[in-house]
Design a protein around this nucleic acid. Structure first.
Lengths: 217, 217
DNA sequence: CAGCGTATTCAACGGTTGTTGAATTTGCAA
DNA sequence: TTGCAAATTCAACAACCGTTGAATACGCTG
């Protein structure tokens, strides 16, 4: 059920990550988590304290790594672009590809982790409590870069476009397999390369349309 | 807390709708719902049976009305367009505007209902169980229409673009107020007209970019 | 092997959950 | 008013929840 050689503390995080991503915070029991980790119930409390602290520990385990990967991708494309700055597509690519890479790792934990991010980002309850603490600084950096690539954009238009990007990304991270059913098997949620290969030009075209000079809405 | 003149059965649905939208299925107690409705716990079971049946009753109450409104909007723009068929923007408008209209009603129940739709659409657990039953027929009609407006589009590209549209819409329906914080008050989640006025050209440009003739990804 | 701190389990607690059957109230027809 | 069915409440059930303190096992240093 779970790799019995890993340290128990990690196994609890793994199990919590997966189950929280699938059923949400209230849909999962500490006893379910413990059973999946092959561990006694009380051990979760011993290592993490209250249930809510375990929930947050799951986020913090991978947050720094993920933010660094995305920030480095942005800085790299900025460095390569030089004076003129990177193109819209390059910025969006820097924002999205690190996620695809993480999802395609052998470590399935990343898939669960990003599905969990999708869960809180879409939740009116958790979203305000957790998203800004985790991602605000990084997102503002990207919006800054997008503004330079679209010099005529109004500030508010950039934020609305970012919300559209964030929503499209969130649904892909959630891995609901809805597109599998809808397309009759023609598209598969698990085909992440196809997902991002379609998302990047889609989103870039949207930004350009809405944020180009003197665009009338 | 809740309009005491409405029939109790409706008040239970109202309370369930609002609380489920905010906290999800497992995050809400039948006792919380009953208290909010000003009613005894057992009454929910009397009217709806198990908790899961109440959950589904919430969806079915407004599903037919919503699907009819969107289908009529599509048929209307198809009728007006005549031979050539409606433009991409007109189809997307028919898909989205009925939602904006519902959200802007005095009836706040619609806002909660659509936030609940966002919750299940983004959930790996509920999505497959509920979305296709509720919306598949309607969505296929829209994809059909989109395919006619983009005659060179490959079938799979249409579905991937629809997923991007669905994601952007879902995050807006969820009403998480994240954009309010992120933009420092410049944009407000509650400003639905601004949300849809930005979403429609954004999405239309994305479809065109990805689905136009011989586009290379 | 002794000793000691950490990791893990055991057993139990008070509180809450969904659900139910019986009792009570309500609304309306005869 | 009586009678009867639908609506609503009351009281209680077994099951499960998160959490805790004490007891046990483990892993290391001396």
């Amino acid at each position: 059920m779970e790799d019995q050689t890993r340290p128990r503390r990690e196994r609890i995080l793994d199990a919590a990550e997966e189950l929280f991503a699938l059923h949400g915070y209230d849909g999962v029991t500490l006893r379910q988590i413990a059973r999946r980790a092959g561990v006694d119930v009380a051990l979760a409390n011993y290592h993490f304290g209250r249930k809510l602290d375990l929930f947050q520990a799951v986020f913090e385990r991978r947050a720094a790594f993920l933010n660094n990967a995305r920030r480095e991708a942005l800085h790299r494309c900025q460095g390569e672009a030089g004076e003129t700055g990177p193109t819209l597509e390059q910025i969006i690519e820097a924002f999205l590809r690190p996620l695809e890479l993480a999802q395609e790792t052998g470590d399935t934990g990343w898939r669960h982790y990003l599905a969990l991010i999708a869960y809180i980002n879409n939740s009116p309850y958790w979203g305000p409590k957790m998203m800004s603490h985790l991602f605000d600084a990084l997102v503002q950096e990207f919006i800054e870069a997008l503004g330079k690539a679209l010099p005529d954009a109004r500030r508010e238009d950039l934020y609305w476009c970012y919300q559209n990007l964030s929503g499209a990304l969130t649904l892909t991270l959630a891995q609901t397999r809805r597109i599998d059913n809808l397309s009759g098997g023609l598209c598969r949620s698990a085909d992440l390369q196809a997902a991002y290969d379609h998302m990047i030009p889609f989103v870039a075209a949207g930004f350009r349309k809405v944020c180009s000079s003197r665009a009338e809405l």
